[in-house]
Design a protein around this nucleic acid. Structure first.
Length: 452
RNA sequence: GCAGGGGUUGGGGAGUGGUUAAACCCGGCAGACUGUAAAUCUGUUGCCUAUGGCUUCGCAGGUUCGAAUCCUGCCCCCUGCACCA
């Protein structure tokens, strides 16, 4: 695969995907093909869109001929990264972690090229493979000896916790050693000389390079890691770069909109919702996201950039962004589904669709709350809509408020009476009812099949 | 351990006996405008079988016609001091 950029570094730089880099990293990447890695925390069952940045980082590395390794932190996950946390993390059970590791591993596999024929095929490794096997004594002697507690204490993630009375446990304090050790192992076993990560991980990443340097010699072995940036490229046995943490143009944490960050798991976040998430991105965010989240070429993106300027109404950039991401995550079928549902929901002719079509389109759509309802005992709209909780409307009071504000539509018709009795007339084809809250949220309710 | 301060509705933060479901700000949600955008404006933001009722102000009791507001005990947090080192 070829691109318009000479090397990954330039590519990533153009995409604003580089916040930090070790001195000389750009030359290395231009000159040789390296093996690089990024770590993924198994704190949840599924990756979410925030993880797209690192994933795309690996994808682009591979595209440019480098060999990507994804580490899932089955071992470090047992410890917990103190970065960005004001309190001690609850420890996950080994079972949970295992489950999460497997889920994440599966998801990663759909982005990277793992084929045997590939000369730079991707690898997924679990750091539990080695972390769970090192002996404590061995670790303290061989690795711990290279770390100065003074330096470790000065780490922002540690210091902020020391200042609070809750403090930090030895467990989390040790985290930085483990992460550094990962890099050392990959360096030794897989000739991996490059690490990428979020800029919040920069300290940990440098710790890894420093460890490698101390273990494998180098003239400046006694220097403090704080001074890494002053070293010449030649002194560094390994390199790294960090991507910036993404925020929206208004400074919010990325992905925090509608009900939390969309995940990459279709069970948790339907393709439709993922599509909608990106479709609704604001103008100033559209182009930066296109650069970060898609494989589109420079000229395509520049074309879209112009379209945001000249014809914002067309929302070409958002549409392309949404389509590209959805296809990458859920494939052509997922994208098709997302578009089909979008069309059904925003064309305002719900009544013309059949129950079958609606169910097909909506079951996995929007809030995904599909709930059966039994009419036989008589039921009000309010109780139908709020059954089981968990839907987009959580209480009768909330329904009333929304109805008062003219925000609720049933099958496309504005609703005025939250307490009216439902009849099977309210269900399209006497089967399904589409509840709409505001412009963008939908629920689907269907009649209990045998209660009709 | 001693002394002092404090725990209020998603967050911040008023309120120290009734007119307080609890000011105000932020956030959230919705409406208008628009482009399924941003900005702006408006409304709303405990629950219910709803011109009323119920449950909320760390927890448990108590005093009162009436408590978030007063008393008692407990839990948790912050600040000084002491102890430890």
């Amino acid at each position: 695969m070829s691109t318009e950029f000479d090397n990954v570094f330039e590519d990533l730089q153009w995409r604003n995907a580089i916040a930090e880099a070790t001195p000389g990293a750009n030359e290395i990447l231009a000159r040789e093909k390296v093996t690089c890695y990024i770590g993924f925390d198994p704190t949840a069952q599924s990756l979410h869109i925030g993880n797209m940045v690192p994933i795309m980082g690996l994808v682009r590395m591979q595209q440019h001929g480098h060999t990507p390794i994804a580490i899932v932190g089955g071992g470090t996950g047992m410890i917990g990264d103190p970065s960005g946390r004001s309190e001690e993390r609850p420890l996950l059970t080994p079972d949970q972690i295992n489950e999460n590791v497997q889920g994440i591993q599966r998801q990663l596999e759909s982005f990277l090229d793992f084929s045997e024929e590939s000369s730079n095929r991707a690898v997924v490794v679990n750091n539990a493979d080695w972390l769970s096997k090192v002996s404590l004594i061995e670790f303290l002697r061989d690795t711990g000896k290279h770390f100065s507690v003074n330096t470790m204490l000065s780490r922002e993630s540690v210091r902020s916790r020391m200042d609070r009375d809750t403090g930090i446990s030895f467990t989390e304090f040790s985290y930085q050693l483990l992460q550094a050790y990962d890099f050392l192992r990959l360096f030794e076993e897989r000739n991996c000389t490059f690490q990428m990560g979020g800029s919040d991980q920069w300290g940990n990443i440098l710790g890894g390079i420093d460890l490698i340097r101390r273990v494998h010699g180098g003239t400046a072995a006694s220097q403090d890691q704080q001074d890494l940036s002053r070293l010449e490229a030649a002194d560094l046995p390994a390199h790294a770069m960090a991507y910036p943490l993404i925020t929206t143009s208004t400074g919010e944490k990325f992905g925090k909109s509608i009900g939390g960050a969309p995940t990459l798991d279709p069970e948790q976040t339907s393709p439709y919702r993922l599509y909608q998430f990106f479709f609704n991105v604001t103008d100033p965010d559209a182009v930066p996201y296109l650069k970060l989240f898609t494989m589109l070429k420079r000229e395509q993106i520049e074309g879209l950039e112009e379209s945001v300027q000249t014809a914002p109404r067309e929302r070409e950039a958002q549409q392309t962004l949404a389509a590209e991401v959805t296809r990458m995550v859920h494939g052509d079928r997922g994208l098709e589904e997302a578009k089909r549902v979008t069309k059904a929901l925003f064309s305002n002719d719900l009544r013309t669709l059949s129950a079958r079509e609606l169910r097909g389109a909506l079951t996995e759509a929007s809030h995904g709350m599909v709930r059966p309802v039994d009419l036989s005992g008589g039921i009000t709209l309010a109780s139908a809509v709020t059954v089981n909780g968990g839907g987009m409307i959580s209480s009768t009071s909330e329904l009333r408020r929304l109805v008062d504000q003219g925000a609720v539509k049933i099958n496309g018709q504005v609703e005025t009476d939250p307490l009216r009795q439902l009849t099977d007339e309210d269900f399209i084809d006497r089967q399904v009812m589409v509840v709409q809250r505001g412009k963008k949220s939908h629920d689907l309710i269907w009649l209990e099949p045998d209660a009709r």
